[in-house]
Design a protein around this nucleic acid. Structure first.
Lengths: 233, 233
DNA sequence: GATTCCACTATACGCATGTTCAGCAGATTA
DNA sequence: TAATCTGCTGAACATGCGTATAGTGGAATC
């Protein structure tokens, strides 16, 4: 007996193995990796990729979907937390390394998977912040959505930047087994200053914030409202 | 009469015009732009680039040097400030758009110019923080160097991430005249949450920080000291 | 005025890429 | 057993890339 619908059910098909090989190569070598490299790594010929996926772009798209699915699956078991913590936890399981690096690369250059996961993290941060405010752990904000977006993008962006400096993400191949220690090193370095800033702030008093609020209140149309309209689209 | 040493003095030489065209194209289209595109934009043939610079890599290197030089020149007039403020100020002058985007792109993919400028910003943040502590504007930190690095990388990384989302930095050409408004929009959106976090923090009390300090003090060798040794290299 | 020099162009070479296509081997079907 | 189907291969094609090279025209030098 044979399975007619080839793809959605069990993922032991050659097609799925090909896609997983692609995820690994994309993670290790970046999204400019050649289809020949992917095919070689999967032990098949280059033409088979076109045969199964039609084009490299389609293959990339299916990798995106699969990676997002994996991420959601992992995340569904745990509680909502800060992106730094999520990355730290995921980086502890070596099996997740390809997915993790794929995601980081995708976030960095604005890929579909990266956008999706980033927005997911922001949504997560919003509810996490609301809950924290309700239980008295987190301070309320004048603009909770903006703060959530800021905290997520700066947290994740900072890690990405440090990763660019430590791992040579952009040049040549990357040994996926090295990514765990590197990420954990970054998280370690970042934890103390993050906690300091999150609990004590950086500025000694509220002069700058008060000044900004005063200016923003006076000019009702510049620049705070501009940022609001821009945020909507 | 003719100038023998062609390059360092006044920058009206064809070679310099070629390099400036390269900076503009790299900024508009990314570092994968072809030498033919650069040559066309400069109104010359592709072979001339090889003739003057030897290789595309060398051209890129000279662009890096020039952009860093321009950045230092602009910065030398002003006071040290946070990277977000620096970017905001530079983004207000349209003339600087190519340099600004070139820098942002270079930081994003770990280029020489990006690394140099990032380290420069961190050094700047350290002295700025020291001065602030001395005058009572900035709170002292348990690890000032780590905090400076954290603040710079998260600030700049966050802007880069938001830029990836708003401008299609990675796909196709970018209209350099649009970058000013986009960057200013990002800065506007980020200013309030930044000021909030910097003056009030995010967490309501010091429980998490105290807990971290207690754990770090107990295990003298893990993980805080690890991060110290890693930071040194 | 003849010669040398040099910025510059046009063409072409070698290479890597994504994709196409004719064909093959083995399982399935008749 | 014969026919069919299909996952798969190997070679080839078109394209875009960085670079090498031969050649040209006009200025500088003698």
């Amino acid at each position: 007996m044979r399975i007619v619908e080839s793809f959605p059910e069990h993922d032991l098909t050659a097609r799925a193995r090909l896609r997983n090989a692609a995820i690994e190569i994309f993670a290790a070598s970046g999204f400019n990796a050649s289809v020949r490299d992917i095919a070689t790594h999967a032990g098949v010929s280059a033409g088979l990729i076109t045969h199964h996926f039609g084009s490299k772009e389609n293959l990339r798209h299916e990798c995106d979907l699969e990676v997002v699915r994996q991420y959601r699956e992992i995340k569904s078991n745990g509680v909502a937390m800060t992106p730094t913590q999520s990355i730290a936890i995921i980086s502890e399981t070596n099996e997740y390394a390809p997915m993790l690096v794929y995601i980081l690369r995708s976030v960095k250059d604005g890929g579909l998977a990266g956008r999706e996961i980033l927005e997911h993290m922001i949504e997560e941060a919003i509810v996490f912040s609301e809950e924290g405010v309700a239980t008295g752990v987190v301070r309320p904000s004048r603009d909770p959505a903006s703060r959530a977006r800021y905290l997520v993008t700066s947290g994740l962006g900072g890690i990405l930047l440090q990763l660019s400096l430590r791992a040579e993400l952009d040049i040549g191949k990357l040994d996926l087994s090295e990514i765990g220690p590197i990420v954990r090193g970054i998280v370690d370095d970042v934890t103390l200053p993050t906690l300091e800033v999150y609990t004590e702030g950086v500025l000694a008093d509220g002069a700058y914030l008060d000044e900004y609020l005063r200016v923003a209140a006076n000019q009702n149309g510049q620049p705070a409202p501009r940022s609001e309209t821009e945020r909507k689209k």
